[in-house]
Simulated scan of single mutants.
Amino acid sequence: MKKLRSTIDAVARRECRVLIVGESGTGKELVARHVHWRSGRRDGPFVPVECTAIPESLIESQLFGHVKGAFTGANENAPGAFRAADGGTLFLDEIGDVPLHLQAKLLRCIEQSEVVPVGDVMPIPVDARIVTATNRDLGDLVRSGRFRSDLYYRLRVVTIRVPSLRERPGDIGALARHRLEALAARYREPPRSVGPTAASLLEAYHWPGNVRELFNALEHACVLAPRAVIERDDLPDEIRDAPSADDPQPRSLAAGQRDIIARALKQAGGNQSRAARMLHMERHRLHRMIVRYGLQDLT
């Protein structure tokens, strides 16, 4: 984590574009926020956009804005995310899911530092630092023709890789203490601690949902634990009952993600809703990933 922090400090001081890569739940948005907070733009806005959460029919308007009357329902002008981030940082999460037909417009916006709202013809200057993130292998997407190579090289001036939680079990104790302190402040109660047996289970678990899953598990324990010390029985079932055998390291980001989803589907008996809850993601997003990785036979 020292290397990660030093990389964040180095890129924060400079106006270069940053691509953050890592599995879902590793804290890519938090890394982007730290880049913003430590930069000269810290007093400007930080505007996060999750590209997968926006319907394809609306993403152009959400990014670049629109003028009144541009389409049905456009009852007033809207600035869009780029203009909302003017003077600050625009964080485009899951950039690999931006439709191919919009990538050319996104590239022009980045190169020219201007946007053309939907329904307009006049470009509007914007001054926003672009930070992007993905849990996909953009290189593979470029080779398969699903992502523009020129946009890819524009975005990846500096790449920051956020390791999965299973790659850094030594950080689990510090992350747990930090989260428990934050939960104590939120619930206005004394901070709890993790007992030795529960701590061993946390360190042995494979964490398919990464830091997000760890934080949710600790909040689950805080809500239900009757004592100041979190014990084994206070943890979620999937952590208490997880096998102790170590999982093999993934061959690549995409291969590791496919293995995690396949394992969750098997544990959930093929039930996508249950698997989505285990992975702490929306069901529709899990379904897209099942199709992407050819795992339909497990459902």
Rank of each mutant, 00 (worst) to 15 (best):
V142A: 00
A198P: 11
P169Q: 03
D86K: 05
R274H: 06
A264L: 05
R143P: 00
L286T: 02
P236K: 11
P236L: 08
Q267C: 03
R186D: 12
R227S: 03
G139S: 09
S61G: 15
R227M: 00
G40E: 14
V229Y: 03
R212I: 03
R283I: 00
P169T: 01
E50N: 15
Q103G: 01
V211E: 12
S6K: 15
V49Y: 09
T134A: 05
I239N: 10
L102Y: 10
A184Y: 09
P236M: 11
R188Y: 07
V118L: 15
A53I: 01
A70M: 01
M281T: 03
Y153C: 02
D120K: 14
R38W: 10
H101C: 07
P125T: 09
A133T: 06
V121Y: 12
V162N: 11
S200R: 15
R232T: 14
I261M: 09
S39K: 10
E203D: 13
S113E: 14
E189C: 11
A70Q: 04
K28S: 01
D97S: 13
A128I: 06
F82H: 04
G270K: 02
S244V: 11
A228I: 01
R283S: 01
L202G: 13
Y187G: 07
D140K: 14
R41L: 13
R14E: 14
L102S: 02
G25H: 06
F64P: 07
D233F: 08
V158A: 12
L138G: 00
R263A: 14
F46I: 00
A276C: 10
H287Y: 12
T299K: 06
M1I: 03
L218F: 02
Q257D: 04
A10S: 12
P243N: 06
C51I: 14
L279F: 09
A276Y: 08
S113P: 03
A78H: 15
P208I: 01
E167M: 06
P248F: 04
S193F: 03
V194L: 07
V162R: 11
D171M: 12
R108D: 01
P55S: 05
R166G: 00
A81H: 06
I130S: 07
T299I: 04
C51G: 08
G69Y: 05
A275C: 02
G73R: 03
R263M: 03
V291F: 05
I172R: 10
L138F: 00
A275F: 03
V158E: 13
T134G: 09
L286S: 03
A254P: 05
F46A: 01
A254Y: 06
M289R: 11
T132E: 07
C109T: 15
K2V: 11
H178L: 15
D297Q: 13
G88P: 05
I130A: 08
G25W: 07
E56K: 12
R17G: 13
R251V: 07
G25S: 05
R83Y: 05
N216P: 02
M281S: 00
L298D: 04
M289V: 00
A242H: 13
I54K: 05
